[in-house]
Design a protein around this nucleic acid. Structure first.
Lengths: 355, 355
DNA sequence: AACAAAATTTACAACGTTGTAAATTTAGAA
DNA sequence: TTCTAAATTTACAACGTTGTAAATTTTGTT
């Protein structure tokens, strides 16, 4: 009936038994080696090749070996597109970031990649603003969102739940209708305040005013520990190193100033630390300081910083496990709540006034 | 012969004419609407749907309209995997970043995304260290590398040229065997030096010591303009705001100090500017300063900074055009060389000593 | 009303995999 | 040697698209 049929790509599959065509390396869909090519070269059927490459125990070791060698030799690369289409699995997870300018994201992204990899998944990124629709179109197996669009929570959660694959949000916000991993920042701040109080500090300040949840946590923590919130004990700092630095520099210290501070994030805290030192304060003898975000940098600051923050390795493990469970349809326990930890180093001491 | 055949996913295609199954939204490969589903609902063949969705002019407008409406209603999302497999095109371009902690990357990434989008492509990211192999396996149509691994150029270029699809590198390095876009940083620095010299500056310093090519450019520029390289006129700064800030703070000014400086990048320059101001220098009356990287931030600094740097919009346009040309097999002209521009603002003035 | 030409729609192989069932080969026991 | 069971390999539909050729419908002439 269709004897006049012409194949769409007649030059395909031209790898011969003895004189295989060089993989030209450019132009997807033309020069790439497929399992059918390998099958021909190995003298087996292509389903055997498929199984061999997937380590199917049905395949005789010697056969697998031969197939693997040929695949290696001709630089075979599995076509994830075809794999997804056939099996419904791409083994790819998408990670949606909101910005690129805090080293925290570098760290989280690296940790997450490692954990996913060890569970058999690969990871690709998009910047939130650039549109996450591509993850739907690509049929990634799952999708992790770093919280963003905090100005319009509703639209954000709607977007998340409209994704056609398992998804969850990593952040501080909660939503009963979607899975999420909540970093309990308020509780983290509370731990920091408690720790400072345990060291005799009664006037505790906060450096940074851009993340409402942390500020709220700070105020609540003061209440819970029975400490007083003093006017002017929140030093304004947005998010960068210099914000922290100048927040402290521009602050006028008096005898009723806080004796300890908590910094909004890694950058702000390090900037503040530097400013304290320059102002002639000894940290922690004169002023105690706890930083948020336990990045490796924090311990290499001028004074090894005591920090609070989610355990970043653990966070990645939890995230990887949650997404994998959601994908597999196992009954994942969520929401997962990550409790920030206190990492004790050398920037907190007994309050001078108590000595 | 295979009358005992059982479909692998018997629940599939269960959308009926009048009672379409709810798109459950979770689990790729099970609940997603396909062109076949739409075809059934619209009462046309699935090739018609395919053509309608791709705006094929063969399709009668009324038919297209109906198909589009149904697609919209059932939240159809094209399956890029299937599209790639069938047509050999994914319309996706991969961008390989080396790190996430400089706002420059945010900017470049956004610009690039916009330009690619306007040319019909989508963009996904990976961090270089996480392995770019996924782009091969995903059969992205093309791949853009931000220069990295500068410690092992050879391995880097080998990796790039081993990619099975059109690729190029964006950066300052060159390689005769691969396409690349070269940002001519040396020439950029030269323009800055020239500009300063034209304003009467004869002792010009450089803040930053981490990017050899820029340091080299600085030294060469001095030679070319007949200026002297003075010992100690390179203030050590790695890459961050505080690096720039302290580079200046730690520098001891003498009567033979430079009267103008060039900053390594956006962060270093802004840190340095702040330090100059604090040290009591008026910029540009006492000291002129030119920053590298023309990010929007630069004009909102304490003094609107004159900068040099690749025109970032243009860079993205060139990059998008090059990769698209490479993909289409058009004879793209490369290497492309981007000449950094001088963006005149208020941080350069006539040298005091000449007045 | 009959026909040709144009417009529109349809059928279906192909893309590169996977997973199932069936076919073939090998090994072991009698 | 023959038979059976186990081990191994093979055949091929299916996944959701695209692109070509063929089929069908519509339109315009006469």
């Amino acid at each position: 009936m269709t004897d006049t049929w012409l194949p769409r790509n007649p030059s395909f599959h031209s790898i011969g038994q003895d004189e295989p065509q060089a993989v030209d390396g450019k132009g997807v869909g033309s020069g790439m080696v497929t399992i059918k090519d390998i099958a021909k070269l190995a003298g087996v059927s292509y389903s055997t090749v498929s199984k061999a490459l997937n380590n199917d125990p049905l395949i005789k070791p010697a056969t697998r070996q031969k197939v693997l060698e040929i695949a290696e030799k001709y630089q075979y690369r599995k076509n994830i597109m075809a794999q997804q289409l056939s099996s419904g699995k791409s083994n790819i997870i998408g990670f949606v970031l909101d910005e690129l300018s805090n080293p925290l994201f570098s760290n989280i992204s690296k940790n997450l990649h490692r954990e996913l990899k060890s569970r058999g998944y690969q990871m690709i990124l998009v910047i939130a603003g650039d549109g996450v629709d591509i993850f739907s179109q690509l049929r990634v197996d799952g999708c992790i969102f770093w919280e963003y669009m905090l100005d319009d929570r509703e639209a954000f959660w709607k977007l998340v739940s409209s994704m056609p694959m398992p998804c969850f949000v990593l952040g501080a916000d909660e939503n009963p209708n979607s899975p999420y991993i909540k970093i309990d920042r308020k509780e983290g701040i509370f731990k920091a305040v408690e720790h400072l109080k345990a060291h005799g500090h009664e006037r505790i300040g906060f450096i940074g005013n851009s993340q409402n949840i942390k500020i709220e946590g700070y105020k609540e923590a003061l209440q819970r520990t029975g400490l007083e919130f003093c006017q002017g004990s929140v030093l304004p700092a947005y998010s960068s190193w210099e914000d922290g630095y100048f927040a402290v520099r521009n602050y006028t210290f008096t005898s009723s100033s806080p004796t300890a501070f908590i910094g909004l994030n890694n950058l702000v805290t390090r900037g503040a630390l530097r400013a304290f030192i320059e102002a002639g304060f000894q940290v922690p003898q004169d002023i105690s300081l706890i930083g948020y975000d336990d990045l490796p940098d924090m311990q290499y600051a001028e004074v090894a910083l005591t920090t609070i923050g989610p355990p970043l390795g653990e966070l990645a493990v939890q995230a990887a496990e949650l997404i994998v469970a959601l994908i597999r349809g196992e009954d994942a326990k969520y929401p997962v709540v990550i409790q920030p930890q206190l990492y004790l180093r050398n920037s907190v001491a007994i309050c001078k006034e108590r000595i």
